[in-house]
Design a protein around this nucleic acid. Structure first.
Lengths: 349, 349
DNA sequence: TTGTAGGCGTTATCAT
DNA sequence: ATGATAACGCCTACAA
């Protein structure tokens, strides 16, 4: 039974009035006879009328949908970010059209295309690792679809973006270690090609420079994120003549692998060697050895900010504010967190 | 510069032909002059023409959008399920309109309404814990929008659903423990109101009955998922005259809290007491004491199945297959997994 | 082979 | 206060 919904026309027919009267009656728009309005609204309710958004969108050229593209939802960082986006979006009756790039640029391109075709009102994206330029995304501008980047953002400054100042955070972290008197600090970094890696390294160097310490580049290893690669890095570090007194891992996952290595090799964790990390994921509080220090990067807030920024841009656009003034940039300062035990996770069945 | 895209009309104007000619030229639809077709396609490419989906949808009454509602994306189980859905959806050029109920029924209602207004082509939903009837969802049927439930599904059998037979799984798990000679098996269950809790209990009872063992209901405790409540359950269990030799937790999160309790109380884990759990999340492999046994519930596959099912239903509908024959039901049998160390997580920065 | 016309549901503008 | 009409972009029967 295709019980498709009644339209304005149908209501009009039954009431023997014109479609426009019905439209106004429901919208309470122009002046309209009180009685007529009541009858219209009554009938609408009776018939269970609901405006057809396809028609509304078509007419208004607005979808109330924003695209969100992240590398992987499974990663706690991104699912948290999505929660933040979703929270703000809901408040404004926007819905999220969702996609994952899987860190693959072709996927990213495909998704952008899909979103373009769906005429999303805007896009929030955290770039895939494989993405170094943003031509495919810039094509959205032609359609006048605003874009906000978050977390993994392009270097260009003519774009709207929200991100964490990881370099600054790294400095904070290393500073803290140095202040504690720790001198031989190692960094297990990601692949050199990642901006994220460069930021960490810069922060590290900066901190060392501040304390007038010479950097032994042997203490800076990198991992491709596989367990094997991380173990390899650990092996190199721990076999140095003067092994590190502290190890800062690229992220919590690398950290956990490093810990595994330490356990297997009877290294006294956080005693012989201190372990620190980035991103402060809740799950780490359930592990044997959470990082003693971590940099909280506020994925939830990043999501919220990104969505708020997007709303503002959309709003400006609709108000016809021409030249997007300045691109908006929000830099969130990561916080150094010291481990607190017993933090609990969400529960579910 | 509102460089909005060219329309068929624009192309027609430039080529001095009619809109329908252009339409056909691009679609290759009706017979059309070869030269004309070429010119049309040429011009379309030149102008960067893209069909306006708002118009297309409006006309075809099809959006190529499916709604997906889960309680929390942050939970690994659901983010995995979404990945599964996303995978299949992408393959078929569907996009996901995404929402979270936060286990709150009002939210669920609000989301359903949003999706209805967006005229999604179908909905995949895992019910909030607070949801006991599905009136709000049934309202979609009136719009002829098909619904597929997964994981947390309603009991009614006139609905399309994909879920895990948790009762059966529990039986498997308890059977295994019993087969190992363990007799005093405790269950830390969820709130009695949850179907999920009932299933676990039934499975437990069934297994005990099969082995002709009397059930001591003191061994069945429940938690509201707070750490405190789980600790309380543990306290009761461990203070019994004959404390359990094995503890089966409602899920991995409860499990991890139970483990915390055990550590704090110097209980010899997996020696004095065996620990088992449900849902087999990857994160547990990084914890000190992963469950010795867990029930894998295949969130990814559930997502895939749900999406495939939805596609099929949508397809049938469009083919005008009237009475939805039988509602489709797919029951996935959970697998008993014994712990394997060193399983690695996804990596990211 | 191509053009014309009508319609999808809504809203805005103009007339009455 | 209300109705008629046009327009949004696309598609398609029908006419030429």
């Amino acid at each position: 039974m295709d019980q498709s919904l009644p339209t304005l026309k149908e209501i009009a027919r039954r009431l023997n009035v014109s479609v426009s009267t019905v439209s106004r009656g429901l919208a309470g728009h122009t002046r309209i006879g009180f009685g007529t309005r009541m009858r219209v609204q009554q009938m609408a309710k009776e018939l269970g009328y609901e405006p057809n958004p396809l028609a509304v969108n078509f007419r208004s050229k607005k979808t109330y949908i924003v695209g969100v593209i992240v590398p992987f939802v499974r990663e706690e960082f991104f699912s948290n970010a999505i929660c933040g986006i979703d929270g703000i979006a809901s408040q404004h009756n926007y819905t999220i059209l969702f996609g994952q790039s899987y860190d693959d640029i072709d996927n990213e391109i495909r998704l952008i295309d899909l979103m373009k075709r769906q005429r999303v009102d805007g896009l929030i994206i955290s770039l895939s690792k494989a993405t170094s330029q943003t031509d495919h995304i810039d094509s959205l501008s032609r359609l006048n679809i605003p874009v906000v980047y978050f977390d993994r953002v392009p270097a260009a400054d003519a774009v709207n973006k929200v991100y964490c100042d990881v370099q600054d955070g790294t400095t904070k972290l290393v500073d803290k270690l140095l202040a504690k008197g720790v001198r031989r600090i190692a960094l297990i970094n990601g692949p050199d090609t990642l901006i994220a890696s460069k930021d960490r390294l810069s922060g590290y160097m900066q901190s060392m420079a501040k304390f007038k310490l010479k950097v032994d580049m042997q203490r800076v290893q990198s991992t491709d994120f596989s367990v094997e690669s991380t173990f390899q890095a650990m092996r190199k570090l721990m076999s140095m003549k003067a092994p590190p007194q502290a190890i800062v891992s690229f992220n919590d996952y690398v950290h956990m692998d490093a810990i595994q290595y330490a356990i297997q090799n009877a290294i006294k964790i956080n005693d012989e060697v201190l372990f620190a990390s980035f991103t402060n994921l809740p799950i780490t509080s359930y592990t044997i050895h959470p990082p003693l220090m971590a940099l909280e990067q506020y994925p939830y807030r990043q999501g919220e900010s990104a969505m708020n920024m997007l709303l503002q841009v959309i709003d400006n656009k609709s108000k016809g504010v021409e030249s997007p003034l300045h691109a908006q940039v929000e830099v969130i300062s990561p916080t150094l967190v010291e481990f607190t035990p017993g933090k609990s996770l969400l529960k579910f069945d």
